[in-house]
Computed example of a mutant assay.
Amino acid sequence: MRQTTSTEATKQLAATLAPYLRPGDVIVLNGDLGAGKTQFVQGVAAGLGIGGPVTSPTFNILLSYMDGALPLFHFDLYRLDGSDQLEDIGYFETVDGPGATFIEWGEKFPEALPYGYLEIDITVNESGIRLVQAHSFGERARNLLFVWAKDSKSRLAQTQ
């Protein structure tokens, strides 16, 4: 668990995850509208050395960034009505693909999440402070969370 007090701090925290990502890693981002999910992806993208702007894929559903140390795929499932639409957007091929996949609003379709993924919940309190909590599902995600939490720059604290 980590608190961030600004957009930049959220991006800096996310950038500390980038060096540990591997092809096939899936990160599910949960949080209300405006909580900082896209900002988190922007931080990871910067950490991967992705050049150009990283924007919310709300209307595109999927944005791909291939110019970093690892391909980055960014889904926003907010506008989808049913899990049958996932097939139409190449969701399953992308999740099993050659890069790290970040999924906003993945909780809408829990049956479509892979066996293993890292879940990051971002909540904002009335003072504008973001609370970032991470949970792992599956062995690879558990290992990813472990090395990320041990990184002194992330300053993630373990919670019970």
Results as ranks from 00 to 15, higher is better:
Asp96Ala: 15
Leu70Pro: 01
Glu104Gln: 10
Leu48Gly: 06
Phe92His: 15
Gln85His: 11
Asp32Arg: 02
Asp81Pro: 00
Leu21Thr: 02
Pro57Asp: 09
Ala35Pro: 01
Gly99Arg: 01
Gln12Pro: 00
Leu48Asn: 05
Pro19Gln: 11
Ala112Asn: 11
Thr55Gly: 06
Ala100Thr: 08
Thr16Ser: 15
Pro23Lys: 13
Val44Gly: 08
Val26Gln: 01
Arg22Glu: 15
Asp81Trp: 00
Thr101Arg: 05
Leu63His: 14
Gln85Trp: 04
Gln85Gly: 00
Asp84Lys: 13
Asp81Gln: 14
Gly52Ala: 14
Val41Ser: 05
Leu17Glu: 04
Asn60Gly: 03
Thr101Tyr: 06
Asp76Gly: 04
Tyr20His: 15
Leu77Asn: 02
Gly43Asp: 04
Asp76Tyr: 03
Gln42Tyr: 02
Gly34Glu: 01
Gly106Trp: 11
Ala18Phe: 05
Phe40Ser: 08
Ala112Tyr: 12
Pro98Lys: 13
Glu87Gly: 02
Gly49Tyr: 08
Gly52Asp: 15
Glu107Val: 08
Gly49Glu: 11
Ala100Lys: 07
Val54Asn: 06
Leu80Ala: 05
Asn30Ala: 13
Gly97Lys: 04
Asp76Ile: 01
Phe109Asn: 08
Glu107Gln: 15
Leu80Ser: 03
Ala69Gln: 15
Leu80Tyr: 07
Asp25Met: 07
Ile103Cys: 10
Gly49His: 08
Asn30Trp: 00
Asp88Asn: 11
Gly51Phe: 14
Pro71Cys: 11
Asp88Ala: 14
Gly31Phe: 00
Gly68Thr: 08
Phe40Ala: 08
Asp96Ser: 15
Pro57Ala: 12
Val41Glu: 03
Pro98Glu: 15
Gln42His: 05
Asp88Ser: 14
Thr38Ser: 13
Val26Ile: 13
Gly99Thr: 07
Ala46Thr: 13
Ala112Phe: 13
Leu21Pro: 01
Trp105Asp: 02
Lys37Gln: 08
Gly52Ser: 15
Gly51Trp: 10
Asn30His: 10
Ser56Val: 10
